[in-house]
Amino acid sequence: MEVRTIKVFTTVDNINLHTQVVDMSMTYGQQFGPTYLDGADVTKIKPHNSHEGKTFYVLPNDDTLRVEAFEYYHTTDPSFLGRYMSALNHTKKWKYPQVNGLTSIKWADNNCYLATALLTLQQIELKFNPPALQDAYYRARAGEAANFCALILAYCNKTVGELGDVRETMSYLFQHANLDSCKRVLNVVCKTCGQQQTTLKGVEAVMYMGTLSYEQFKKGVQIPCTCGKQATKYLVQQESPFVMMSAPPAQYELKHGTFTCASEYTGNYQCGHYKHITSKETLYCIDGALLTKSSEYKGPITDVFYKENSYTTTIK
């Protein structure tokens, strides 16, 4: 009895394709271990004539594949690729409408935090270190965002349907971005203890939790000093293409032309909904596939993004 075979390709990165001759009487799992086709788990399936010449994702289970996976995804987590594939199996079914010149995501599976993050990423200057993220990001900007969303979920250790947080998501993504040249110098002034300067680099240099107003941050924000008295913390120097200011959701007025974009969060910790506000020729609110415009805006804002380049204080 002759062994019926077909020729397929296996890959971990969709760049390096490895030619395989597979036995049609055995499952993919018996031949390769966990195997995925377009995100779908085909591990328990036997090869079919229609699979001839198709590319299958496999887990990096030998040295060659491990090197290829690390170079593309910059992670050695053995569960990463499987999590990416199972997320992709959902995100490829989502709709990605162009809204006001940006790629958004039609609401499904509690994905409003991903839509808000995706919209924000198209408006701030950011370059990702893992080629996987950078490639998928370019495709997302062009309207094909399924891979990018699935990668975000995998890097953030999230599953489809789980509630997510924009600030946490951005923080994970910033860790995989090139923020080497970003720098922030802060000064804390206390009447009792004097003053202390701190220099922050990388992710810490672009994120701040405690106030939404970048102007206020430049002037000074009140913080408790270690001595128990009130101290003032203010920005001395900022070198970065953008800054992200966050605070627990509270009524906040966004003035046209003073910011790049913002995240609105309605609801409580267990259950809520994100919308995205962007400042173009007027203010726009993007909620999944829905767009509304207004000249002014007041609502429960939790993150505001500002364009920056270089700032030095005039406070002496």
Rank of each mutant, 00 (worst) to 15 (best):
E2K: 12
E2F: 09
R4N: 12
I6P: 06
I6K: 08
I6G: 05
F9P: 05
T10N: 09
T10L: 15
T11N: 07
D13R: 03
N14T: 10
N14P: 08
N14E: 15
I15R: 10
I15W: 09
N16R: 10
N16S: 08
N16V: 10
L17K: 11
V21C: 14
V22N: 05
D23L: 13
M24S: 12
M24R: 12
M26Q: 15
G29D: 08
Q31T: 14
Q31W: 14
F32A: 07
F32P: 06
G33L: 03
G33V: 06
P34L: 11
P34H: 10
T35A: 09
Y36C: 05
Y36L: 03
L37P: 04
A40P: 07
A40K: 14
V42T: 09
T43F: 09
T43D: 09
I45T: 13
I45K: 11
K46V: 15
H48M: 12
H51C: 05
H51Q: 10
E52G: 12
G53P: 04
G53T: 10
K54G: 12
K54V: 12
K54L: 15
T55L: 06
F56I: 09
Y57W: 11
Y57D: 06
Y57V: 10
V58K: 07
V58T: 10
L59S: 12
P60F: 08
N61E: 12
N61H: 12
D62A: 08
D62K: 08
D63H: 09
V67E: 10
V67C: 15
V67D: 12
A69T: 08
A69H: 11
F70P: 04
Y72S: 09
Y72R: 09
H74S: 07
H74D: 05
T75L: 06
T76K: 09
T76Y: 10
D77A: 07
D77R: 04
P78M: 11
P78Y: 09
S79H: 14
S79M: 14
G82T: 14
G82M: 15
R83K: 13
R83A: 09
R83S: 07
R83E: 02
Y84S: 04
Y84A: 03
M85Y: 14
S86I: 14
A87P: 00
A87W: 00
A87Q: 04
L88N: 06
N89Y: 15
N89K: 14
N89S: 12
H90C: 12
K92M: 10
K92S: 10
K93S: 11
K95I: 14
K95Y: 10
K95A: 12
Y96Q: 02
Q98L: 13
V99E: 08
V99G: 07
G101P: 04
G101H: 01
G101K: 04
L102C: 07
T103S: 04
T103R: 05
I105D: 06
I105W: 03
K106V: 13
W107A: 06
A108I: 06
N110M: 01
N110K: 05
N110R: 03
N110E: 06
N111L: 06
N111R: 01
A115Q: 10
T116V: 13
T116P: 05
A117T: 09
A117N: 05
L119H: 06
T120D: 02
T120K: 04
Q122T: 03
Q123T: 06
Q123H: 06
Q123N: 07
L126S: 03
L126D: 04
K127R: 14
F128R: 03
N129T: 09
N129I: 08
P130W: 02
P131R: 06
A132E: 03
L133V: 05
Q134D: 07
D135R: 08
D135F: 08
D135T: 08
D135Y: 08
Y137Q: 07
Y137M: 10
R139F: 08
R139N: 11
A142I: 11
A142F: 12
G143L: 03
G143Y: 03
E144I: 06
A145L: 03
A145R: 02
A145W: 06
A146C: 07
F148R: 02
C149D: 05
A150V: 03
I152V: 11
L153Q: 02
A154I: 02
A154K: 00
K158E: 03
V160C: 08
G161Q: 04
L163F: 12
L163G: 12
G164E: 03
D165L: 02
D165G: 08
R167F: 02
S171G: 08
S171V: 13
L173D: 05
F174E: 02
Q175P: 10
Q175R: 10
H176C: 07
A177I: 00
A177F: 02
N178W: 04
N178F: 03
L179D: 04
L179N: 00
D180V: 07
S181L: 08
C182F: 05
C182K: 04
R184F: 03
R184K: 02
V185E: 01
V185D: 05
L186P: 02
L186Y: 14
L186Q: 12
L186H: 09
N187T: 09
N187H: 11
N187C: 13
N187I: 09
N187D: 07
V188W: 08
V188H: 09
V189D: 14
V189N: 13
V189I: 11
K191F: 08
K191L: 09
T192G: 12
T192K: 11
T192N: 13
T192M: 10
G194E: 00
G194Q: 02
Q196W: 13
Q196K: 12
Q196R: 14
T198F: 14
T198G: 03
T199Q: 09
L200R: 07
L200A: 09
L200T: 11
L200N: 07
L200M: 11
K201S: 13
K201P: 04
K201V: 12
G202K: 05
G202T: 02
E204C: 08
A205T: 03
A205N: 00
M207V: 08
M207I: 08
M207K: 09
T211D: 06
Y214C: 04
E215M: 06
F217W: 06
K218D: 04
K218I: 04
K218T: 05
K218L: 04
K218E: 04
K219M: 12
G220Q: 03
Q222S: 13
P224W: 12
P224F: 10
C225S: 01
K229A: 13
Q230P: 12
Y234R: 11
Y234F: 10
L235M: 03
Q237V: 11
Q237E: 11
E239P: 01
S240E: 01
P241Q: 10
F242D: 00
V243W: 03
V243G: 03
M245A: 01
S246G: 00
A247R: 05
P249T: 01
A250I: 09
A250Q: 15
Q251P: 12
Q251A: 09
Q251S: 11
Q251G: 07
Q251D: 12
Y252A: 09
E253D: 10
L254E: 04
H256Y: 10
H256N: 08
G257Q: 05
T258W: 04
F259A: 01
C261W: 01
S263A: 11
E264V: 11
Y265P: 04
Y265A: 00
T266N: 09
T266G: 11
N268H: 14
Y269V: 15
Q270Y: 07
Q270T: 10
Q270E: 14
C271Q: 11
C271T: 06
K275A: 13
K275R: 15
K275D: 00
K275T: 15
H276Y: 07
K280H: 10
K280C: 13
E281G: 08
E281Q: 05
T282I: 09
Y284C: 15
Y284D: 09
Y284P: 00
C285Y: 04
C285F: 10
D287P: 00
G288I: 00
G288T: 05
A289D: 13
A289K: 09
A289S: 11
A289P: 08
L290Y: 14
L291K: 10
L291V: 15
T292W: 06
T292I: 08
S295A: 14
S295T: 12
K298S: 14
K298H: 15
K298Q: 08
K298A: 13
G299E: 02
P300I: 15
I301A: 00
I301E: 00
T302K: 01
T302P: 00
D303L: 04
V304L: 05
V304K: 00
Y306C: 01
E308G: 07
N309C: 11
S310P: 05
S310K: 12
S310Y: 14
T313S: 14
T314R: 15
T314N: 14
I315Q: 15
I315K: 15
K316W: 15
K316H: 15
